[in-house]
Structure formats: structure tokens, C-alpha cells
Design a protein around this nucleic acid. Structure first.
Lengths: 234, 234
DNA sequence: ACCTGAACACCGTTCAAGT
DNA sequence: ACCTGAACACCGTTCAAGT
């Protein structure tokens, strides 16, 4: 009975945390980890913070902006290779993009957010800056590197949004099976889609990893072979 | 007064259309054209068809599947070049992908659907078959063509999902301005993001069309330079 | 300025009951 | 088998009113 109360900084969920943008984003991030993005709603976060949904609008414009903030927070986890890291620039670049993709694999609906909103938070910018550095190290002209950075991130994001979905929602494997069935039917002997018939099982070949590796190679080879148009003399 | 009543096929909205999957998808497509995908909801379509939302579940698994069906319907509009069309395979391929992208530009939320759901309707498959044909014509080995088709469609879709948003929603140009501001701030003299500073205005250079053209070039050059792994000897 | 409760205008999906 | 009304369990956002 004489034990003192725990210090206020206990983080366990203080009785009434002060409202702030940081507190809101933190609560949202916690909710993401525990229950997924579907539960990261204004009302739910408000409940978590012992207030009403309307109060959040002082700090956050709308749900989309909040989700973008959560995404940026998550991107803090992507490790950039140190300056003296092993491997050539290309391996390191592929590594960063792969780890970015794998992170978003686990949060496909956040990947969808990333495709629509052009994240511009500090962690997104840091990541982009890192990609630019690696491309520059590889001799890619600065303007090409700028465009290529966008392209690479967009591709990695889309990859996560597409592939990530396939394991998440209930019924996802059903949907996947239906897709395979539709493709196989289109490629079966009687089908009028000649080119699909000719492709046959090649249409569904390869694992996710193989395809990701290959597509990053395609992108990098393409970037190295394709100067951007316009006034910049590479 | 002696004029006969209009034929029942008048399409104006018969008093009580028979429920069917086709009728539901048609109503959904009409709603898409008139009010955008946000209004293509189960309840709204049910109202349009003079029934209750629950009735739709006999023909459609859920909202996502319905949206996928609407997307496939829309893809009927993408023109494939005839066998004797002008231009080499590469120009024709770029043309198809550009028209696909432009179509989805006008329906960015459908583009988002396309990224998540792997459309497998007849029009999607026809389009994919056409892409395979053009790649094959270009001498791309069949397995590479299969993987490349996925990659090209995914890229075009992501492009539409991202860029299309920027003109649609109210406040979209505000958001766009904020993105530019954030990038410029990150590239300003004082910033610690060295590579962004070095890139400067190159970061925001180029129009949407220029970037799309360039990225398709990157993809095609990359595909031509990058064989898929595995047993297929090109 | 910040916070709140209540209200407005919606959602998707399920289920028991009917035909 | 198909259709329905009602219910359940939620949403985002605004606004007048308070402090």
C-alpha cells in the first residue's frame, strides 16, 4: 500500500495523454501493428486517445493524410547501406529496394496508400535520397537518376500492393486460385487467345522473389540504356 | 395518343429490370460514368435496380469483385492494333499501353482496384494476349514475354493510379503543391539530403507524358536486355 | 485555440423470414 | 433458388456550443 504510483512516463496508456499530431500518429502506428490498417480509423484512434473523432481534425487534415503519416513512420525501418557497405552499388540498390518491398508486403493497404499519395515525409525523402546516391555512384546522370528513383519506388510499391494482398485477406488464396484458373482457361487448347495458348504454363511461372529480382534487373538495365529526353547532356 | 409505347428494350430504366449479374454490372458501369467509383456501392446500385442491397449478393461476391467486373467492362474500350496496323511492333505496343494508361487516368480509383486484384475478365485477358503478341513479334522469347506483359501492365496501371489522382479529388492540386514544396525544401541549400540537393530542379522535371514515354522505353529496353532466369533457353 | 457531443449522411454484410 | 427488410457494426466529416 505504500508503493508509489508508477511514473507518468510509463507509456502503458496514460489516463489522458495530451493530444498532439505526434500522439495521434503514434496511436495510429500502434493500431496498425496490432490490427491492420483497416482499423486505423479516426473514430478508433479517438477512442484509443480517450477523445472524440472530431478532435483529431485539429492536427490531421483527413484520414488519407493520417495514413500517409503512418506510412512514413513505417519507412523508418528501411535500412540504407552505410557508405562503406559491402557489394557494388547495384547490389546495394537492389538490397534497399527489396527490403522496402518486403516491408510493404506485410502492409499491402499501406502500399496502396503509397501509390496514390506521393509520400513526402522525412523517412520517404531519406530513402529517396539514398536511392539517388546509389544511382549516382553507378554513373547514372543526375536527371536520369531523379526519374529512375521515382520509377523504382513506384515499381517496388506496386509489387507490394499486388503481391502483398494475396496472403492477407481471408479468401485471398481463393481469389488467387480463381486468377490462375482464368489464366489457364484462357491458355487452354480451345481458346481464341493464341498468344496465351502459346505461352501456356510460362504465364504462371516463377516465384514472387524471382519475378521481383528479374523486374529490378529489367528496370536497372533499362535505366542504364535509356537517357531521359531534354536539355541535360548526360 | 395512338402512338405505340416504346419497345421494352428502350434502356431508359425499365420499371423493374430482372436481376442478373449482367444487369448489376451494367448498372454499376453506368454509375461509374455518371458519378465516379465512390458511388458504385452495393446500396446505391440496389437503389438503382429497385431492390435491396442484400439481393445483389446472389450474383456478386462482394464490392471488390463488383469493382473488378466494372474495370473489365471499361477495358473493352482499349483498342488493340489490327494485324496490319502501321508502325513497328514497338510503336504499336507503346500505343496500346499509352491508351490503356490514359483510360485509367480518368478512373484512378479503378486503377487502384486493378493493382490489387489481378483482373481476369475477358477484356483484361484479350488485352494481355495482345501485348504478348506484340512482344513475340518483337522477338521476345515467350517466357520473357509473359513476365514482361505483367510488368508492363502493372507499370501502366500504377502510373494511372498515381498521376490520375492528382487531378481528380478536390484538394488534389493542394496536395500536389505540398509534395513539390516538400521536395524543394529537401533539395534546398541547407538540407542534409545531399543527393537531392545535387539533383535540384531535376527532381520535378518533365511532364507526365514525357515520363510515361521514357518509362515505357526503359521497360522495353530492359526487357530486351534481361532474360528471365530458369530452364527456358531463349 | 482547442475540444466536444451530437448529428448528418452514408457504408458492407449477414440473417431470418418469406415466396 | 431467389429475394427481402431489418439489423449489426461500423465509417468520415461538419458544426454549434462550450472552455
Amino acid at each position: 500500500m505504500t508503493r508509489p504510483p508508477p511514473p507518468a512516463s510509463r507509456r502503458e496508456r496514460p489516463a489522458k495523454p495530451a493530444l498532439s499530431r505526434a500522439a495521434i500518429v503514434a496511436a495510429a502506428s500502434a493500431l496498425l501493428a496490432e490490427e491492420g490498417l483497416e482499423r486505423v480509423t479516426m473514430r478508433r484512434i479517438a477512442t484509443e486517445l480517450d477523445t472524440g473523432a472530431a478532435s483529431l481534425y485539429v492536427y490531421v487534415r483527413n484520414t488519407e493524410e493520417l495514413h500517409a503519416a503512418v506510412l512514413d513512420e513505417l519507412l523508418a525501418e528501411v535500412q540504407l547501406p552505410a557508405g562503406d557497405a559491402a557489394g557494388n552499388w547495384r547490389e546495394r540498390l537492389t538490397g534497399v529496394l527489396t527490403s522496402y518491398t518486403e516491408l510493404l508486403y506485410r502492409h499491402p493497404n499501406l502500399a496502396r496508400v503509397a501509390i496514390t499519395t506521393r509520400p513526402s515525409g522525412p523517412h520517404s525523402l531519406r530513402l529517396f535520397d539514398g536511392l539517388l546516391g546509389l544511382l549516382t555512384e553507378g554513373g547514372v546522370p543526375v536527371r536520369d537518376a531523379a526519374w529512375a528513383g521515382d520509377l523504382l519506388v513506384q515499381h517496388a510499391t506496386a509489387q507490394a500492393a499486388e503481391a502483398g494482398t494475396r496472403e492477407e485477406a481471408p479468401g485471398a488464396e481463393v481469389e488467387e486460385a480463381e486468377f490462375s484458373a482464368a489464366v489457364r482457361a484462357a491458355a487452354a487448347p480451345g481458346s481464341p487467345l493464341e498468344n496465351m495458348v502459346a505461352a501456356g504454363e510460362d504465364l504462371l511461372s516463377g516465384t514472387g522473389e524471382q519475378r521481383l529480382r528479374w523486374s529490378l534487373d529489367v528496370l536497372l538495365n533499362g535505366v542504364l540504356a535509356t537517357p531521359t529526353p531534354g536539355p541535360t547532356a548526360g
